Amino acid sequence: MGTIVNGANGGFKGKAGSIIGSSWKSINYIKGLYKKRTKPASEAQLIQQEKFRTLMRFLLPINVFLKIGFGGKNTEKVTPMNAAFQFNLKRAITGVYPDFSLDYSNISISDGGLYGGGTVSASFDSGELIFTWSTGASETFETFADDLVYVLAYHPEKDEFISTPAPSTRSMGVVTFLVPDHLASGSVHTWLFLSNRSKTRVSKSVYLGEVQLI
C-alpha cells in the first residue's frame, strides 16, 4: 500500500494499484508498473540498446574518474555517470549497427572550465608510461600549484584501464608508472584532466593519443 509523505501535499511513496511512487535527491516521482513487452523491439530500439551497451561497457569501470570529471553536471537531476553517458553518446560511437565501436579520440572523461595542463603528452619508455604537462599556475585563471592531475590509459585488447595510485599535482609536471607485465604489449589510449584541490572545478579532458607499448 502506498503512503503520502510529508502531509497531503507531499510526495507519494510505495505502490497503489498500477502506479509506484518514489523519490531521489528530494525529487518525487510517480511511474507505472513495468509491463512485460509483447512486441519485439524495433530496429531503432535495438540500435539504441547496442549503443548503450557499447558506451556503458567502457564508462562503468572508470566511474571513480567520472564522479570527479562530471560531478558538477546538474547532479541534482542526473548522476555523473549519466551525465558522462549523455555527453559522449553522440560524440564517441562510430560504425553501423550492429558493429558499433568507440572513437577513443572523441571520448571525454571530464568537462569543465578549469584551465587544463597546457602542453601535454604521453609516451612509453623502459616499461613505464610517462605523462607530462605544463606547470605554470595563474591567479588570473584561478589555477594553482596544488591542482590535481588525473591520468588514464586504456588497453583495448585486454579491455583494462590503468592509472596512478593517486593523482599528481600541477606543480609536478610529470608522472610515470609501470605498465603491468600482462599489458606490456600492443597499445593504450591515454587521457589527462585536472581538478582543483576540492574537486569542485575540473578541466576538459585531453585525449593524448594512442601510445605503442614496446
Rank of each mutant, 00 (worst) to 15 (best):
residue 182 H to W: 11
residue 74 N to A: 05
residue 193 F to Q: 08
residue 163 S to I: 00
residue 147 D to R: 11
residue 145 A to K: 10
residue 131 F to N: 11
residue 178 L to W: 07
residue 129 L to N: 14
residue 122 A to W: 02
residue 73 K to L: 01
residue 130 I to V: 14
residue 90 K to I: 05
residue 116 G to Y: 05
residue 168 S to Y: 04
residue 153 A to G: 01
residue 76 E to W: 02
residue 171 S to Q: 09
residue 128 E to M: 11
residue 183 L to W: 03
residue 86 Q to I: 06
residue 160 E to M: 13
residue 191 W to S: 12
residue 126 S to R: 15
residue 163 S to Q: 13
residue 93 I to C: 03
residue 148 L to V: 12
residue 119 T to N: 12
residue 174 V to G: 02
residue 138 S to K: 09
residue 174 V to A: 06
residue 72 G to A: 04
residue 73 K to Y: 02
residue 175 V to Y: 00
residue 144 F to Q: 09
residue 138 S to V: 08
residue 141 F to K: 15
residue 149 V to G: 03
residue 102 L to S: 09
residue 170 R to Y: 05
residue 192 L to A: 09
residue 116 G to P: 10
residue 201 R to F: 04
residue 76 E to K: 13
residue 92 A to V: 07
residue 78 V to W: 02
residue 127 G to D: 13
residue 200 T to W: 03
residue 126 S to P: 10
residue 186 G to F: 06
residue 115 Y to A: 14
residue 184 A to F: 02
residue 76 E to H: 08
residue 90 K to S: 10
residue 156 P to A: 15
residue 176 T to P: 00
residue 97 Y to A: 11
residue 203 S to N: 03
residue 129 L to T: 14
residue 192 L to W: 04
residue 173 G to V: 15
residue 163 S to A: 11
residue 99 D to V: 14
residue 175 V to N: 03
residue 129 L to S: 13
residue 175 V to Q: 04
residue 109 I to V: 15
residue 150 Y to V: 07
residue 121 S to D: 10
residue 197 R to N: 08
residue 181 D to N: 14
residue 76 E to P: 02
residue 72 G to D: 04
residue 205 S to R: 02
residue 187 S to L: 06
residue 194 L to P: 02
residue 102 L to N: 12
residue 198 S to F: 06
residue 145 A to C: 06
residue 78 V to R: 06
residue 92 A to L: 06
residue 149 V to W: 02
residue 106 N to W: 06
residue 80 P to K: 06
residue 99 D to K: 14
residue 167 P to N: 11
residue 128 E to Y: 13
residue 171 S to C: 07
residue 193 F to Y: 14
residue 146 D to Q: 10
residue 156 P to T: 15
residue 99 D to M: 13
residue 190 T to R: 03
residue 176 T to C: 08
residue 171 S to R: 09
residue 147 D to H: 08
residue 87 F to P: 01
residue 139 E to I: 08
residue 125 D to W: 01
residue 110 S to H: 02
residue 97 Y to T: 11
residue 88 N to A: 02
residue 204 K to R: 10
residue 162 I to C: 04
residue 74 N to C: 03
residue 126 S to T: 15
residue 193 F to M: 12
residue 195 S to K: 05
residue 108 S to F: 14
residue 75 T to P: 02
residue 140 T to I: 10
residue 144 F to P: 03
residue 94 T to H: 06
residue 206 V to M: 05
residue 202 V to Y: 01
residue 96 V to Q: 15
residue 145 A to T: 13
residue 143 T to I: 12
residue 201 R to C: 01
residue 94 T to V: 12
residue 100 F to P: 02
residue 187 S to I: 07
residue 134 S to F: 07
residue 148 L to C: 12
residue 162 I to M: 11
residue 193 F to S: 05
residue 96 V to T: 15
residue 192 L to H: 05
residue 130 I to N: 06
residue 174 V to N: 08
residue 108 S to W: 12
residue 103 D to T: 07
residue 89 L to A: 03
residue 83 A to P: 01
residue 84 A to V: 01
residue 132 T to P: 00
residue 198 S to K: 10
residue 190 T to P: 12
residue 76 E to G: 08
residue 197 R to G: 00
residue 77 K to L: 13
